[in-house]
Structure formats: C-alpha cells, structure tokens
Write a protein that binds this DNA or RNA. Sequence first.
DNA 1: GCATCTACCTCTGATTATGAGGTAGTGGCT
DNA 2: AGCCACTACCTCATAATCAGAGGTAGATGC
Lengths: 115, 115
Amino acid sequence: MGAGKIRGQLLKGTTPLLVLTVLRDGELYGYEIVQKVREKSGGTFAPSEGSLYPALHSLEADGALLAEWRESDKGPRRRYYRITPKGSGLLAEHEAEWAAFSVGMARAVGSRANG
Amino acid sequence: MGAGKIRGQLLKGTTPLLVLTVLRDGELYGYEIVQKVREKSGGTFAPSEGSLYPALHSLEADGALLAEWRESDKGPRRRYYRITPKGSGLLAEHEAEWAAFSVGMARAVGSRANG
DNA sequence: GCATCTACCTCTGATTATGAGGTAGTGGCT
DNA sequence: AGCCACTACCTCATAATCAGAGGTAGATGC
C-alpha cells in the first residue's frame, strides 16, 4: 500500500502524454483510451475516469484534440477523439520533457556515483 | 514556459527519492542536499526550498532520517541529516517504484507500437 | 548602519490523481 | 416487468505536493 501512494504522485502530469500517445495511431473513445494505455504500458498504467475525462476536456479546449459524438449499436453513445497538428506538437513537447526528466533521474538515482 | 509547467507535475513524488539517494553516501545539510541533487542529476533537478524542507521533516517524522543541529564557523547553524535503516528500506521502495514506473512509461511511450 | 550571502522555515495558490457518486443505453435472467 | 451487469460518459470532494514569496537569523564587508 505504501508503494501505491508513491506511484500516485509519480503519475502526476503523465495523463496528457499517455493519451496523446495512444491517439497518435488513430481515433479512439474514452474507454478505449484507457484500454490502449493499459495494453501499451504492459498493464502498468490505466488512467482513472476522474483523471481521464478532465484531461480529455482540457486537451480538447486547448485545440490538441478534436472530438465527435457517435452512436453505438450496443450501448450508450461514444465520444471519439482525434489528435490535431497542435496536439502532435504538444505530444512532442511532452515526449521531450519526459525524456529529459527520465535521463536526469537515471543520472541522479543510477547505482554509480557521478560526482 | 509551457515545458516547465509539465515538468513541475512530473516532479511530484520524486523529492524523497532524490533526497534519500544523495544521503546514501553520507550526511548532509539542507543546502548541500540541493547542491548534491543538482550535481548528480547533471543540473536537471534542484528541489526548491518549499518542497525540500517539508520533505525532510516528513522523512524525519517517519524515522527515515536522523537530524542534528550543528554550529557553523561562518554562518547560521545547520541541520545535518543522516539516513536510518528504515530510510534505506524506504529508499529501496522508492527505487523499485521508480523503476516500475519508468519501464511502464518506456513501453507506453516508446517510439514503436507494442500492440 | 546596511546590504549580502548562507541557512533555515512556513504559508498560499495551483495542479492533478483518486474514488465515489450520478446519468443512460443495452441485454440477460427470472 | 423487475433487477442486475456492463458499457460509457461526467462531476465532485479529498489529498498530496511543488513553486514562489515571505520571514528569521548569523557572519562579513563597506
């Protein structure tokens, strides 16, 4: 349980990156996004609804995503999300941030001393 | 500026890991901890005072660190921190969390499709 | 006396993940 | 028909914690 508490904090700020990443391969609706993230991350990540939907709305408001309602044959309607050119730019920014961040962590936490 | 906003969120939860990591090599006081973190991370990280001191107090309260006031020849007194066995255990936990987290991210964000 | 550097501490505001709750459509079971 | 489960969306209250600004205090130099 203690470990989960740490993880919850590490997750902060990763939802837009994860969402934009799975949408790079094509349009998806909310539930599908969670499944794709879980799949791609090897089961490590699966954004909760309480963080997914606000993130989607915020990305849409920023012009990073385009959304469209569509009916489903078998269940409630779905809101499909598609990445925009602006979203691709934002994705690149998030990827660069993550890369710099994880390199810094590898240096700082790496088993060997650096100084 | 936009990038910094992302990073600020990614940083959440990393302060205890960074602090415990630099204290693994010996005791340090607050200002020194920031410098060591900056040094080890190649300039990527340098905890702000507003996050460092609360983290130190919390780690001390948890029994992960032992602290001691000492006078300085040339300036105000310093509070030296030393890692305890419990702190080493916590460090191992944080390291494992970080490892799992960064592996998951590498899978999810890696340039090639996984599924 | 006053500014500057070191060194500590605390508070406010902003961001965001979680978990619980709520609304609806579809289909299966009794 | 009534009930439950599953899909699919959304929102709210709570908790964690980072940044930045402010405050206290000792030592040094002008």
